[in-house]
């Protein structure tokens, strides 16, 4: 298996994530799709780091994982506070502000 395969897989994962964000309406699923995009990025970094024989990409992956965890904590808290006020986490229901 060459690096190209991994890149293809990660590009596909990224695309799935993007499509999910654009089409899904439940904010938790949208957030899961964003996480999928970030994991696709991680895979890309690892694949390139392996190809280049360079540690930089692997370290970057750690950074992405850490930040994604922090983001998850904040994001789920936001989703909960939205749910408390509206009893729904559907992004179509969140339409108080025009636009």
């Amino acid at each position: 298996m060459s690096v190209g395969h991994y890149l293809l897989l990660s590009a596909a994962l990224f695309a799935v994530g993007v499509v999910g964000v654009v089409t899904r309406r439940n904010s938790i699923i949208v957030y899961m799709c964003i996480e999928l995009m970030l994991n696709a990025v991680n895979l890309t970094f690892i694949a390139f780091a392996r190809q280049l024989g360079d540690m930089g990409g692997q370290i970057f992956t750690f950074m992405v994982m850490t930040v994604a965890a922090a983001e998850a904590a904040v994001g789920l808290a936001i989703i909960i506070s939205v749910f408390r006020n509206r009893l729904s986490v559907d992004v179509d229901d969140v339409n108080l502000l025009k636009g």
Partner: peptide
């Protein structure tokens, strides 16, 4: 609430692109 949710979801989406760009 709504502002936070929109900002968070779209911001996360944009960061995904930013990171993929960095990886490339």
């Amino acid at each position: 609430n709504e502002a936070a949710l929109k900002y968070f979801l779209l911001g996360g989406f944009a960061v995904g692109f930013l990171l993929y760009g960095m990886a490339m």
